[in-house]
Computed example of a mutant assay.
Amino acid sequence: MDLLALADFNLVARHGGFGRASRESGRPKATLSRRVADLESGLALRLFERGPRALKLTEEGRALFERTAVLLTELDEAAAAIASGGGAPRGRLRVSAPLLFSQAAMGTLAARFAMKHREVRLEVTTEDREVDMVEEGYDLVIRVNPAPDERLVGRIFLRDRLVAVASPALKKPAAGKTAPAVVRPGDVPAHAAAWELSARGRTRTLAVEPVLQLSSLFMIRDAARAGIGVACLPASLVTHDLAAGRLVHWGDVEGPEIALWALYPSRRLLSSRVSAFLEFLREAFPQGTPDELAAFME
């Protein structure tokens, strides 16, 4: 297989068209079109559906792109590392991170990483949806409790837990009574629900009645501070409020832990940029505790 033709096919697939690939790479559009046509002819496969206004990968084209994009990147990086004598990481590093983690820490983390690795162009996108790393061109994603994905490997770098907190002005309800609660839409039914709480080695059931629904955990925390109801929040988000007495701890919420994973495409050779970012996360969160994340919110 012609590696140059394969590289041009990946270039066109990544940019979604011959014109855009030509503008981004500086390679003639006619050359890209000819090399892709030669590759299709050699494989006896149609790799793109060519419409009057759009270019779309066929099923075979998508499979080829997903299998070869990482390999070509590794070849480029291996050649660059050899040429530079295995020097400092360099090039573009695209990261996707969830909203709460980004708001709490990513600005500071990104700045520190960029200052440490001056030749890496870090780009961070914040969103809670599960991005397709290969299709959307990400090098690394940070996800909370991700579902198993055989295409990805990674490691946990931070753990958190959920706690029930409220303003000191809000009294705990007596046994069998209901507490007003601030929740995210969809977290609990519109009617009363119950949280299982543990504190000082004892477990109790807290009946809650949602009185306010807010989409942001930061907004929920602020509403709980104001005293409208109890809230279920990550411990890292309320560490300083608990220490300052703005909120009080009603108990840890029973359920699965919150684990933040750094994930990347399964590959034998790992990009030096990704390796550097993984090591940077390990240094930033050596114990992986909620208090270490809370330190970024001071």
Rank of each mutant, 00 (worst) to 15 (best):
V131F: 01
L47G: 02
R200W: 10
L100S: 09
V183M: 05
A207R: 15
L278F: 04
G229N: 03
L260S: 08
K177N: 11
P148C: 04
R27N: 05
E254A: 15
R204L: 12
G251P: 02
R46W: 07
G201S: 12
P146F: 05
S275Q: 12
A294V: 07
V230H: 01
D38A: 14
I220K: 11
I220L: 13
E292Y: 05
D222C: 07
T73G: 15
T73M: 14
A164G: 05
R94G: 01
L237C: 08
V238W: 03
D187P: 06
R23N: 09
L242A: 06
H249F: 15
L122E: 00
L100M: 10
R159F: 05
G251N: 02
A223C: 02
R90D: 00
R273F: 00
E292D: 08
G176S: 09
R273D: 00
A166Y: 03
V144C: 11
L4E: 15
D187N: 11
Q213K: 14
E59I: 14
L242F: 09
E77D: 07
L281Y: 03
Y264A: 03
S167W: 02
L47Q: 00
A83V: 08
A88H: 07
L43M: 06
G245F: 07
L93N: 01
E60R: 12
A83K: 11
L11Q: 01
S167V: 04
Q213R: 15
L242H: 04
S216F: 07
E196Q: 14
G227S: 06
N145Q: 05
L72M: 12
R204G: 07
K116G: 12
A79W: 13
A194P: 01
M115T: 11
H15Y: 15
A114G: 10
D128H: 03
I156H: 05
G91I: 00
